[in-house]
Design a binder for these strands. Structure first.
Lengths: 153, 153
DNA sequence: GCTTAATTGCAACTCGTTTGCAACATCGGC
DNA sequence: GCCGATGTTGCAAACGAGTTGCAATTAAGC
């Protein structure tokens, strides 16, 4: 099914990833391409470990040490190529997207599935932060619940 | 200044803490009293380590192992005597208050000071979660910014 | 006071993440 | 295309928060 076409679009992502790396002043290496490719094709978010497993097992030959994953993710995050998500379970997750990709997640307490919420309620509703006097305020907001699949049982 | 009076109010807190423990079916021990006392007098929130230092150094003789702090906090949280806060730095914090004490925090990025926000904007404005279909939805919301003391410099 | 079950301390352990260092690959210049 | 400087990687060892096993202790009911 449209294998050629798929391969082509995959190639296209790779070019984007290369550009992103070069623009950021980073060397283009297989692990880095593999990580960016993965995050571009499946949006995740993924833990470093999940990324490691997927990248190492993929045919795309991005196999590398877990440490490399951590170091790449740290660089990518510093350059806003990816965003870090923290859902309060012991580990961190990453997804593609820079500062413009502001959004929030809802996580199923049972199956841990993660959905993205398109709008940011905090900015939407221009929530007031009354007497705080803080400047340069950002926020982190996550929702937790039971997803339809889980409460169907 | 008003040392007697202060001592009295401190004693009063201790009685509350004892009651809370007994009502919860927990044995009344020095470490537990010390932890609850601390959280009642300084609202924190504090990391387990901060609690350990304060409790161990206080004259109130709640000195104990860090492990004991962890175990007490876990029990207290399970019984909703305290709330867990997660600000996404490597560790967790606790503050007094049960389910009814729902509120959020704003954390200074520079000095790490934590202020409490009285209202919950999410519940206030009855934010809609459109097409998610999730049930039993709760949320976590924290704000980060630069506090007046820090941007004054 | 005595018994029993809960609690504590200590040491060892887990797990996510970081760091030191030597080997290696990328990229710009020749 | 080769070469050297610099950035990147792998491996092993370290790290820090939190957990667990077990024996010793202590609170609470009798």
């Amino acid at each position: 099914m449209a294998t050629k076409h798929h391969a082509h679009s995959h190639k296209h992502e790779k070019v984007d990833a290369e550009d992103a790396l070069r623009n950021a002043g980073l060397k283009v290496t297989k692990p880095r391409l593999a990580i960016l490719d993965l995050l571009a094709s499946e949006h995740g978010p993924f833990t470093p470990d999940e990324i490691h497993v997927r990248v190492t097992q993929s045919k795309a030959a991005g196999a590398c040490d877990l440490v490399t994953i951590y170091r790449c993710l740290a660089k990518f995050e510093g350059l806003s190529l990816i965003n870090r998500c923290d859902f309060g379970d012991g580990t961190v997750r990453y997804e593609l997207g820079g500062k413009d990709h502001h959004h929030h997640h809802i996580i199923c307490r049972l199956c841990k599935r993660v959905d993205s919420l398109p709008d940011c309620p905090v900015e939407d509703k221009s929530i007031k932060l009354p007497k705080t006097g803080f400047r340069n305020v950002s926020h982190r907001l996550e929702f937790f619940g039971i997803c339809p699949d889980c409460y169907a049982d």
